[in-house]
């Protein structure tokens, strides 16, 4: 099968769906953040896979190597990873504050306490 040759992308799609599903289906706020992280990791892998050049070496200058993988997507995704870390940290900080304010981190409990939807 040709499509199996691009198995990276199947992994990406799988992880993306797992992440989105966890985010939507779980009421626990921490689990939502876990889902968000899985979802973002899928995108990281997508970018890294994109940079691969067939037969290309790791993009570090070495004597005798003429074909390198494209380093640009790696650099881009490094930025996105930093953003992901910041988002996770902020999200967890909010969860701590929510726990202090409500005494629960479950979405259903929170809605019940606020009589909000």
């Amino acid at each position: 099968m040709i499509s199996l040759g691009l198995y990276n992308y199947w992994i990406v799609i799988g992880l993306m769906m797992v992440g989105l599903y966890v985010m939507i289906s779980r009421g626990n706020l921490i689990k939502k953040i876990v889902g968000l992280n899985i979802f973002q990791s899928a995108v990281f892998i997508m970018y890294i896979s994109m940079g691969v050049v067939e037969g290309g070496a790791v993009p570090i200058l070495t004597d005798g190597v003429t074909r390198y993988s494209n380093p640009l997507p790696h650099v881009l995704i490094l930025t996105a990873i930093v953003v992901g870390v910041a988002t996770t940290a902020l999200g967890l900080a909010l969860v701590v504050r929510i726990k202090e304010a409500y005494g629960s981190v479950d979405e259903d409990d929170l809605h019940r306490m606020d009589n909000d939807f």
Partner: peptide, 25 residues
């Protein structure tokens, strides 16, 4: 409720931004 609304926006906003990132990729 400011906290829960900020958290909800964080989840939805990050999904939006990540979708954007996928598109650009």
């Amino acid at each position: 409720r400011a906290l829960t609304s900020a958290f909800r926006y964080l989840i939805m906003g990050t999904v939006g931004a990540t979708f954007f990132l996928i598109g650009v990729g």
